[in-house]
Design a protein around this nucleic acid. Sequence first.
DNA 1: TAGTTTTTTTGGACTTTGTCTAAAAACATT
DNA 2: AATGTTTTTAGACAAAGTCCAAAAAAACTA
Lengths: 126, 126
Amino acid sequence: MTKQKALMLSIFRSDFCHGKHRTADEILAYAKDLMPGISRATVYNNLKELAKEGIIRRISGDDGADLYDSDTALHGHLICSVCKGVRDVGAPRLFEDLKRISGEDIEAYELKLRYVCESCRHQNLN
Amino acid sequence: MTKQKALMLSIFRSDFCHGKHRTADEILAYAKDLMPGISRATVYNNLKELAKEGIIRRISGDDGADLYDSDTALHGHLICSVCKGVRDVGAPRLFEDLKRISGEDIEAYELKLRYVCESCRHQNLN
DNA sequence: TAGTTTTTTTGGACTTTGTCTAAAAACATT
DNA sequence: AATGTTTTTAGACAAAGTCCAAAAAAACTA
């Protein structure tokens, strides 16, 4: 356990990550604020490591950049087509439903649902 | 309608793409075989265009490269964790299920299911 | 059809995201 | 403290994709 890895862990437990989805670059910038000397490679290494250990979850973002989610429970994501905002959709039954529908023994899933969020829907009425 | 765009359309209708998921680079290489002078930017432009027009579907691949699918009907993908092979899972009811579960008026979804495919499962028994 | 306007293509530079490497530093173990 | 292992570091590198301004092609107009 190095100082750098400990920092990463604390970042993922902090409000900066709580309930949010962060890119590697956002994590890097934040980590540099707290530990200016930290290297990009270290942040990337640890992100990979933490994801492999199951401490965080890596999901593929919309624009090419991967996102990291400190909520490791299997869940889907509602993505607003307008503002790109992300909301979790935790569906306890969803996993079982997907197994049944696919007829396979699914290990995990990644689900993105496109919609228009409440506030964007209202904006659009103007 | 330019010659280049017509070529792209024909590629997506051909066996090269039928039932498969192709990266931009694979499409580019194939297009260059048929029209050597075609530019990378043109292929990328047209991929974006065709996706916007709904003629093809863009899905985010596993390794960072986006994939293009000529099957535009909403469907999910079964991805083998071992060999990375992709199988479609077309579920007519899935879309409605997802709307119901999320409680939102979903426009589209993107679904990846991780599993181990038949042949990889057998290999593993050795 | 000729001339004009609009759209598309082109090639290359550029950006973003991420990986790799070899040397240095930190860590763990005894 | 000495040793061996692991991690970090900086920078080079790579892949995937975007952006740009000039040239070419297409579409439009009269």
